[in-house]
Design a protein around this nucleic acid. Sequence first.
DNA 1: GAACATAGGGTACTGAGTACCCTCTGTAAA
DNA 2: TTTACAGAGGGTACTCAGTACCCTATGTTC
Lengths: 253, 253
Amino acid sequence: MTEVRRRRKPTGEAPESAASAGDVTKTPMREVLAESAFALFLERGFERTTVDDIVARAGVGRRSFFRYFPSKEDAVFPDHDRCLADMTAFLEAAGAAEPVGAVCDAAHLVMRMYAAKPEFSVQRYRLTREVPGLRTYELSVVRRYERTLAAYLRTRWEGAADGALRAEVVAAAVVAAHNNALRTWLRRGGEGDADAAVEHALATVRQVWAGGREPVGEAVREPEGDEVIVMVARKGAPLWRVVQQVEAALTEE
Amino acid sequence: MTEVRRRRKPTGEAPESAASAGDVTKTPMREVLAESAFALFLERGFERTTVDDIVARAGVGRRSFFRYFPSKEDAVFPDHDRCLADMTAFLEAAGAAEPVGAVCDAAHLVMRMYAAKPEFSVQRYRLTREVPGLRTYELSVVRRYERTLAAYLRTRWEGAADGALRAEVVAAAVVAAHNNALRTWLRRGGEGDADAAVEHALATVRQVWAGGREPVGEAVREPEGDEVIVMVARKGAPLWRVVQQVEAALTEE
DNA sequence: GAACATAGGGTACTGAGTACCCTCTGTAAA
DNA sequence: TTTACAGAGGGTACTCAGTACCCTATGTTC
């Protein structure tokens, strides 16, 4: 039962991706594992692929997998850590910029990450739709972005009335708008201008929530000199529509 | 190792909550299990409590646990299924009501569920903060509410320009506002008017996104007759603040 | 009183995740 | 030139959630 075999691994049995002896740029283990995992998930499904299958294909030990990924799910989203770090850095650099504009711009970073590998993103999307465990995991990924945005807004609106509340609502709205554009783009198979789609989705959020001047569409000019906006609205007109009309008035002129 | 013991359970060893013989209203198994589970989670922590511990305390077999809860996490949120069903029913009954108002009202249902058992809710909140697995699980719970709200809004705004987009953004904003109020209330230890807190948090969302007349605060009167609202806004004033001013103007008069 | 549904019970197995410890290899200090 | 050490990788054994399969009561309905 407790037979200890000191099975020494034959020296020749190196990871498949290791090339000839003088190869300087061998693919990092993490990537090898992520690729093996993803290939198997597509072939046999997420649930019917065990971690043992993954490490067998990568030609490494089971232990190594968990050194690079805390869970099986993590191997499906290997790039979000990086993107989250980018977003944090971006917001730190944003400094005194208009806050809502800054978080909207930050949201573009995520879409750009997806758009950088359209085929992979689409395949992963389809996989995620089908596997409940991955859907749940994705929620926690999205939530990390949302928290990052909210944290930034909170510091920017510190002391303001209901600052924390507004921070969370705006962050949630930005994330929802972004995800709507992202999912539409993914369902289309990754065709079309991803960036423009996100910008369109975020337009209303920018208009409604942005304080200060709006750097949205360059087509929208500022009221000049002593110009004043006078809105005459029918009773019960929805606010977002009023906003659209104001924008239209300023654009068409 | 594989010794099969046909340990027949002594007849007297009934679940602790089963009262005297003639008791007609014995507590349903599901509740017994949820209570045992929660008590143990508080005593020893979520991770250090096994399903075996739970069923041992409840005096039933391990199998029974998974008959009532698909996972260990589910035992911590036994009431959300019911609440989600209530919300769905509420929205179906809402019919032709103003959509944003309807989803805001629907959000109150959730807060009321929490407020119905303040001590339990606060304890569960503290537990959830500490256990990563529960935090993730909670995300999926919240997401179900969000999807329900979004689905309702989508049908209401079918055909409208960017209807699906607006549905998801508004649903996310409502959920975020609700959760902000809920968490604040929970951190306060469940003291204070929970309903009022939610309503306050939702006020801005209602104002900004609602189409049609707003049944928000009864203090806000409708513009009468051929009244016309004229807003004079300083350049660059944030829209949500303009809205607040309009509301103030209508209220104070 | 046979047929059947329902509620609960038990066992065995899979597989993720963890703890602990071993073995190289390259680099820096002695 | 050893020695010490850090870091990357490897292996085994264990725990425990979750699943599959099957068993036994106890009504309940023709």
